[in-house]
Nucleic acid binder design. Structure first.
Lengths: 220, 220
DNA sequence: AAGCCTCCTGAACGACCGTTCATATTGGCC
DNA sequence: GGCCAATATGAACGGTCGTTCAGGAGGCTT
């Protein structure tokens, strides 16, 4: 079995430096593991790979983590938790107008997925390797974020400032929320140094598109 | 290392039957491999797993495929090729109006990603395990599909029937095409038996959203 | 019946896996 | 200096991996 496969496009490898860091080893391990998972995917990255990348040997991992599994969960959970917090905060600071709330949400969400695109990519792609208990934790957080969007949409419809597309005369706000989130999440799959737009411009573009999708009336 | 992890949600396992099929062994192997890759992911599915699932032993694989790698490529390439063909055909049959073309494209694309969601999911998720030459082949096909969308958008703008959002006064049709495709592609990640909408309704909803995003004027 | 071709078996190969553990090394504190 | 706790080492363990290959089974042609 060849080991040299890559999961990112050729021009976007993260750099794996084999240097001994000044920071505490736990963080060096986290960082090295993250970089390797991003490049090659959890199941084919070995404990030996990770530890070599931060200048240690296999055994030392188990002074800091119970298992390779816990290490992955540690990485994903911190990314996901931070994302959920940012989203709540963005909506809370928007002053109650659904149009402003949606705009703030999309802006924060897209900017984060551009800036920390590798983190987002790992969190989305490697989640399946976690054991059942840990994966449930992450999925709860994702549902929470989706429900933030659904709530914004419902308020907007109730107040008459949104008019999203209907199927059979009725709204399916959950499906629309998923569509918006899918769109925004997956900028992390292709946004990068090669592109033409800055993070700000991406956020603006995606906000415009989202407001169009939900049929927002111009803001007062 | 535990092997029992799953990559799909709990209620959507594909069934792995351990029966000897009447069809030729090549196809039985393809089908078994596909089912296992979908459930558990390429790197953790072993050649022994695949062959046991169709009532054979490990060694027999190599009478039909050069390697496990070739087997995966075989599966992904056929899905991807078919998708590209369907997209071209849908656009060609739309009569030249960009609004009809976009609607036909989204409709076909979404319906296929709902109906053959597992196939799409495997093609999207496992592509990274292919070696460089094979992955390039698949990526070419994806770019071709993206370019179909870009072309539709450009025609629509030129004829004045589309008015997509601008950044700094200019269109970035590639980014918009990617956003639309991401949205449509990833219905395969969550659409399923649990949902409220039929494939037809999903296609309609996504078509509406796409036309809104590009700012389509009502059709004559 | 004999030869041949196709396909399958299952042992074997060499490599690598996650994890453990006895042993060594380190750096702070008395 | 001596001591202790924290941390690193690297051999070793029991497995599993993809792949190879000598041999066998079954059917077709001659």
């Amino acid at each position: 079995m060849s080991k040299r496969k890559t999961v990112l496009a050729d021009d976007e490898q993260t750099t794996v430096v084999a240097e001994r860091e000044a920071r505490p080893p736990v963080e060096a391990i986290r960082a090295a593991a993250f970089a390797q998972f991003a490049e090659r995917g959890y199941p084919v990255v070995t404990v030996r790979d990770i530890m070599k990348a931060c200048g240690l040997t296999q055994g030392a991992l188990y002074n800091h983590f119970k298992s390779k599994d816990e290490l992955l969960h540690d990485i994903i959970a911190s990314t996901q938790g931070e994302l959920e917090r940012l989203c709540q905060q963005a909506v809370a600071g928007a002053g109650g107008d659904p149009r402003a709330e949606l705009a703030a949400f999309v802006r924060v969400y897209v900017m984060r997925h551009c800036r920390l695109r590798i983190e987002a990519l790992v969190a989305n792609r490697e989640i399946g390797w976690l054991d059942a208990a840990r994966v449930a934790d992450i999925r709860r957080s994702r549902r929470a974020i989706r429900d933030i969007v659904v709530t914004i949409l419902r308020h907007g419809v109730e107040r008459g400032v949104f008019d999203p597309p209907r199927v059979e005369g009725k709204h399916d706000l959950k499906a629309i929320a998923m569509a918006l989130l899918d769109q925004c999440t997956h900028v992390s799959m292709w946004y990068g140094p090669g592109g033409d737009l800055t993070e700000e411009q991406m956020a603006k573009l995606y906000t415009d598109m989202a407001l169009r999708v939900v049929g927002a009336t111009p803001q007062a």
